[in-house]
């Protein structure tokens, strides 16, 4: 029993390094998607202290809108543009209708409001586009679908072109986002708002504009994530499970940290795959991915209550 836990998995890893690499690769791909969702979340949390539960649903909603528009006969790239438009309208609407009247309410009320938005988006999306599972328009968007087979250590390593594209696009997006946050006026305004609300307001940064902006950026991220995830698993509201996956990522990385979201996402993506393959399936009957990330984050939090990269919590009486 003990050797099953402490020795055999590592023996398996060393015995089949090609399989281990395959597992790591798949973990990396899902990890990068978790990191993306968590990033959209961190942006909103930093600039408005809103724990945005709707981030995961925005992913599904964006993907659904894209596929739905295409199904009505709109060409693929124009539907992408239109979907971005929809996400912008969504950002403005949320800011106007939900956030503005709730400014200054306790955190938990704003959190509940985002759950309300979540429900609304689920109902709205299903009413308009139907609730059944749909195919992502991978080919129409020019995303390659083949695979490359490598043979390291005399074994097999299958890399889906789709996954490679996802990793490249996601890396570019993260890079672009970091550049935006660090080198543009708007980006600096977002960071300033995150550091000190009142100081930012007093130098003339408009709260409303920034809020719309961060929700729109979150919408763009949601669309990219939605396309990537939809191409792997189809588009339906079952995708919302990945929304929950972003939460332990945030916990692990810290709610305010952009670095934390990226590192946390990759860590959770890889570790949960490793645990599932080498410990979960042989010992626990599988499907451990639903909870492993949460329990991992919980254990880390016991030692660092603000996450790995979060702001140190200083309490005063």
């Amino acid at each position: 029993m003990l050797s099953d836990i402490f020795i055999n998995p590592f023996v398996d890893m060393v015995a089949a390094p090609d399989f281990l690499m395959q597992v790591l690769w798949e973990g990396l791909v899902s990890g990068i998607l978790y990191a993306l969702i968590a990033l959209g979340f961190v942006l909103i949390f930093r600039s408005s202290r809103i724990f945005n539960f709707a981030q995961g649903i925005m992913v599904v909603f964006a993907a659904l809108t894209l596929v739905g528009l295409h199904a009505y006969g709109v060409p693929a790239w124009i539907s992408v543009a239109l979907t971005l438009g929809v996400m912008f309208v969504l950002a403005v609407t949320i800011e106007r209708v939900v956030l503005r009247p709730l400014v200054g309410q306790p955190d938990i009320i704003l959190f509940m409001a985002t759950i309300g938005i979540t429900l609304f988006l689920i109902g709205f999306g299903e009413t308009i586009f139907g609730g059944e599972n749909k195919q992502m328009i991978t080919a129409e968007l020019g995303i390659p679908t083949g695979d490359t087979v490598l043979e390291p250590f005399g074994g097999l390593l299958i890399l889906q072109h789709l996954d490679i594209t996802v990793v490249i696009v996601a890396t570019l997006l993260v890079g672009a986002l970091l550049a935006f946050l660090n080198y543009t006026r708007m980006g600096r305004a977002i960071r300033a708002l995150g550091d000190d609300h009142q100081a930012a307001l007093s130098v003339g940064i408009s709260l409303q504009t920034i809020w719309v902006l961060v929700w729109f950026i979150a919408g763009i991220i949601a669309l990219v994530t939605g396309i990537a995830w939809g191409a792997r698993a189809g588009v339906s509201f079952a995708l919302e499970v990945i929304a929950y996956k972003a939460l332990p990522v945030l916990m692990l990385g810290g709610l305010e940290s952009i670095t934390g979201a990226i590192v946390g996402g990759l860590m959770i993506g890889i570790l949960e795959k490793l645990f599932e393959i080498y410990w979960g399936q042989p010992l626990l009957g599988g499907n451990t991915e639903t909870w492993f990330a949460f329990v991992l984050a919980l254990v880390v939090l016991l030692f660092r209550p603000q996450g790995l990269f979060g702001e140190r919590i200083i309490e005063r009486v």
Binding site: P248, M251, I313
Partner: peptide, 25 residues
Amino acid sequence: LRIKGFYLAIATLAAQFFLVWLFEK
């Protein structure tokens, strides 16, 4: 005792997902 606020909320989600998995397995 150590974790507070939203961190705790997500921590209770660990209970949620773990227990439902346990009911199944």
